[in-house]
């Protein structure tokens, strides 16, 4: 029983990180209708940014997150403004191809500049736990989970309450009308992609504190984010949280009771099952 509870706790904590990874992907997908295949590479860059700030400048990894986020925001804004805005009206295949190209370029630049060595972000408190009843809650993962919750809520509030957020929602719900009421689509798109990249940057920094990083982590993380975005639905950030938590728990349970090698079988199996049962996502409206 304690074992099961422990697995559930780990699963929820893992799921919080998953949700944050997927949030940026879902935002960009929902607003720009771009499935950003370079999302995982942006997460990877966020992880390296945090690692460099920690090992090079001795900045605490959690304090380094805003810097990583700001750098990734700038990179994302430039990618959208300079490249993706040129093809956004084209067929979806073009954006898939171009974001895939960006993913390849970023991955191999990372290999060239950062080498293929495995890195970890290992602050002094990395191994510390909090014992709660018979359960162990690792500090780092709990903090990562808290940051994820705050950011997701902030994102939701931003979309609902601010002028720019409303412009983003207007552009995603009816682009033609939004333009005619004065919303500049290119600026809104660049801001949205920048935000998506910033979220990836934070997710990357947190990922680096709980897992090893190397230049090749991007691809699998894109796939995972994609699964979560679909499971959660693109309608609202709460769906993405639900999707992340769900996947985290399912993977943890599978790893314990079936075997760690079956984790991906479980996650992609869930994707197929959910697409059959609720094509709009867990919290999404079904057609």
């Amino acid at each position: 029983m304690v074992l099961l509870l422990q697995v559930l706790v780990s699963g929820v904590l893992l799921g919080g990180l998953y949700a944050l990874m997927a949030l940026g992907l879902a935002l960009v997908w929902g607003v720009l209708n771009i499935v950003n295949l370079s999302h995982g590479a942006l997460i990877m860059l966020g992880a390296y940014a945090t690692w460099f700030l920690y090992t090079g400048a001795h900045i605490d990894p959690f304090a380094a997150l805003p810097i990583a986020a700001a750098s990734l925001f700038a990179l994302g804004y430039i990618i959208q403004r300079g490249i993706l805005n040129l093809v956004i009206r084209g067929p979806m295949f073009n954006t898939l191809l171009i974001t895939f190209g960006i993913e390849v370029i970023l991955t191999y630049l990372a290999q060239l500049w950062f080498s293929a060595d495995f890195r970890t972000i290992n602050p002094s408190y990395a191994g510390s736990n909090h014992a709660l009843g018979g359960l162990t809650v690792p500090y780092v993962q709990a903090l990562a989970f808290a940051i994820d919750s705050v950011l997701t809520t902030a994102m939701w509030m931003f979309l609902l309450r601010t002028r720019t957020g409303r412009g983003i929602r207007a552009a995603s719900q009816n682009l033609v009308a939004a333009r005619l009421y004065g919303v500049d689509p290119k600026r809104i798109y660049a801001l949205t992609f920048g935000l998506g990249a910033a979220l990836a940057g934070v997710a990357g920094g947190l990922y680096g504190t709980v897992s090893q990083i190397n230049p090749y982590i991007g691809g699998p993380l894109t796939a995972k984010s994609f699964v979560i975005a679909i499971i959660g639905g693109l309608d609202n950030p709460l769906g993405v949280i639900a999707g992340g938590l769900f996947l985290g728990v399912v993977e943890s349970l599978t790893a314990l009771y079936v075997g760690p090698t079956y984790r991906d079988v479980a996650s992609f199996g869930m994707l197929v099952l959910i697409l059959i049962a609720r094509p709009g996502g867990l919290l999404g409206r079904t057609a």
């Binding site: 601010t162 412009g167 929602r169």
Partner: peptide, 28 residues
Amino acid sequence: MKPFPGMSVLENASIGALFGTNGGERSI
């Protein structure tokens, strides 16, 4: 008609106010 389907009636109209003439109203 092209409303923003996921927004309330008030939010719909406020998009016009937020982004309209002269770039619109800055305050929500």
